[in-house]
Write a protein that binds this DNA or RNA. Structure first.
Lengths: 186, 186
DNA sequence: CTTGATAGTGATTGGCCACTAACTTGGAAG
DNA sequence: CTTCCAAGTTAGTGGCCAATCACTATCAAG
C-alpha cells in the first residue's frame, strides 16, 4: 500500500479515535491498531501526533460540508436549509463525525489558553468557511445561518450525552408537537 | 483551613484547569498548584482524579443555573428568556465556566464509548434538570427552551474558537443588523 | 545479481503522571 | 506538659506513551 493511501486510512482511523478520546485521551497506539499498522510507522507518515489530529480535524470539517453540499445540491433558500437540516440530523447516526467537531473546539480552546493563538486563527478560518458556504446556500442572511448552526451545536451536545432519537428532549426541534403538559411545579 | 474549605477551593481550581485542558489534558499537579497545596494532598480530599472532575462538572451546571435564576428572578415568559439570554451572553466573559460545560459533554461521550453508560445517565439527569428549570421559567414550552439552549451551545462554540465580541460572526444573534452584503460568489 | 528505494517492524527510552506511604507540624483538650 | 487528631508535606513507584533508532522485506530497474 502506498504511503498516500496509508495516510488516508490513518486520517480515517484517527478521526474515530480522537472523536471518542479527545487529543490527550487517545494514544497513537490506538490509532495504529485501528489502521492495522505498527505504532512507530505513524511517525513516518506524519511528523507527530499533533499533525495527525490536525489532519483529522480538517477532514471532519470538509466532510461536514460535503454532506451539506450533496444534500442541498441545486436547492436554495428555505429548501436548501431544510435539506441540510435533514442531512445533519442523519449525521446523528455517525456520532464520531459530530464528536470530532466538539473535540476540535475544545482543543482549539486549550491551544489558545496555552498561548498558541495561530491555532485559533486557523480554526476560525475553517469554521467561517463552512459557515459562509452554508449561509450562501440558504440565501445569504446571517440570522438564518446562525440559527442553523445553533441547532446543529445543540444536536452535537445531545448526541454526546446519548439521548436516543425518540427521547422527549428531541421534541423541541422543528416540526415536533409538544408531548406533555407544560404545567409543572418547580 | 478545614478539609471542607479546601475541597471547595479544589473544586474551583479544578473547574478552571479542566475547562482549559480537558480531563486527560489536566494534571492533578496543575490543580494542586492553583490551589496552593501539594499534589498528593488532593487524594486525601478526594478519592481520585475522576471524583475531582465530577465535582467540578456538577458545580459547573449548578453555577449555570444560579446565573439564570438570579437573572430571571421574578420574571417569566419572554421577559425571563431575554434576561437569561443576556445573562448567558455575559458569561462569555467567564470562558472557563462555558468551556467546562463542553468538557463535560465530550467526557460523557468518552465514558459512554468506553462502556460506562451510568456516567451518561447521571449527566443526562443533570442536563435535563437544568433544561426543565429553564423551560418552566420561560413559560413551559419545549420549542422555546430548545431554541434557548441551541443558541447557548453556539455561543459556547464561538467562545471556544475565540471570536472577539465585535466580530461579524456574532451579528446573526438577536437584535443585530446585517453588517455586509449577502451577495458573494462561492 | 545487485542496487536502491519504499513500506514496514521490534526494541527502547525518557518523561510525565496518578496514586501511595511514611513522616511532620500545629493547635486544642485534659 | 502531654496526648491526639486533623492538616499537610516529601519522597517514591509503577505504568503509560510519544518519539527515535536500527533493522527487515519486497520489488523494480539496470
Amino acid at each position: 500500500m502506498s504511503a498516500e493511501e496509508r495516510r488516508e486510512s490513518v486520517v480515517r482511523a484517527a478521526l474515530i479515535e480522537f472523536a471518542r478520546g479527545g487529543y490527550h485521551g487517545t494514544s497513537t497506539e490506538a490509532i495504529a491498531r485501528r489502521v492495522g499498522v505498527s505504532q512507530p510507522y505513524l511517525f513516518r507518515l506524519f511528523p507527530g501526533k499533533q499533525a495527525i489530529f490536525a489532519a483529522a480535524a480538517e477532514r471532519c470539517v470538509e466532510e461536514t460540508w460535503r454532506v451539506f453540499d450533496e444534500a442541498s445540491a441545486g436547492l436554495s433558500g428555505e429548501e436548501a436549509a431544510d435539506a441540510m437540516s435533514a442531512a445533519y440530523m442523519s449525521l446523528v447516526e455517525d456520532r464520531d463525525q459530530l464528536m470530532m467537531q466538539m473535540q476540535l473546539y475544545v482543543s482549539v480552546f486549550a491551544a489558545r489558553a496555552a498561548g498558541e493563538e495561530e491555532v485559533g486563527e486557523t480554526a476560525r478560518r475553517l469554521w467561517e468557511n463552512l459557515f459562509d458556504r452554508v449561509r450562501i446556500r440558504i440565501g445569504g442572511d446571517m440570522k438564518g445561518a446562525t440559527q442553523f448552526f445553533a441547532y446543529g451545536m445543540l444536536i452535537n451536545t445531545m448526541v454526546a450525552l446519548g439521548y436516543p432519537p425518540d427521547h422527549r428532549m428531541w421534541s423541541g426541534f422543528d416540526g415536533c408537537e409538544e408531548p406533555e403538559e407544560p404545567e409543572e411545579s418547580e
